[in-house]
């Protein structure tokens, strides 16, 4: 059986490998890359502080994302709404790093943009299941919602994303690159 000190060390040493997942989830929650930076860092520090509460044998990534969401909901979400008056996303700001030089990148940027324009609840669910690879059950645990809600959120998101894909495919490439 692991000692609390060993568990704490395991959590700390697992953080670097999970930074990308935390950041992407933080982005999905906040819709803002700068806020995602802040949220990621605070998640790491909170995880270190609470490392003794991690249950051995459970999924570290899921535990970290639960912390991330808790910080977002309890500390930052209201602040962001107060400052920006909304949780609307401006994906153009985030896309500049993606450098859509070839067709596949253009398409990826368009899908990314559309995902980021989904409502927060759908965005976080899509991120967990499609990007981070969690099952419906695991995503439901992280989001603290019924599994049926996860599936219905995904169904709605799929409809919206499919509409976009259809619109995109009907437009000529030249128009998409402008």
């Amino acid at each position: 059986m692991k000692t609390p000190k060993k568990i704490s060390q395991d959590v700390r040493s697992g953080l670097p490998d999970n930074l990308g997942s935390i950041w992407r989830f933080a982005l999905a929650l906040s819709g803002d890359a700068t806020v995602a930076d802040d949220l990621t860092q605070s998640t790491c520090l909170r995880a270190i502080e609470k490392a003794g509460q991690f249950r051995v044998g459970t999924n570290l990534t899921a535990w970290l994302l639960t912390i991330c969401r808790s910080i977002w909901l309890n500390q930052l979400r209201a602040q962001k709404i107060r400052i920006t008056q909304s949780l609307d996303v401006t994906p153009e700001n985030l896309l500049c790093d993606m450098q859509p030089e070839i067709e596949t990148h253009i398409f990826a940027a368009q899908v990314f943009s559309q995902v980021m324009q989904l409502p927060e609840a759908q965005r976080e669910t899509v991120l967990l299941v499609y990007v981070e690879g969690f099952g419906y059950r695991e995503a439901a645990g992280i989001l603290d919602i019924p599994i049926g809600t996860v599936m219905s959120r995904l169904a709605t998101a799929r409809r919206k994303l499919a509409d976009l894909a259809k619109e995109t495919s009907e437009r000529p490439v030249e128009a998409r690159t402008r």
């Binding site: 790491c44 985030l94 940027a109 899908v111 995902v115 990007v131 690879g133």
Partner: peptide
């Protein structure tokens, strides 16, 4: 489709900055 859209994120230098 969605996974590929997020594959380039985040930039590694961004994570180094966070740390």
């Amino acid at each position: 489709r969605v996974r590929q859209a997020f594959a380039a994120l985040p930039d590694p230098s961004r994570l180094a900055g966070i740390m």
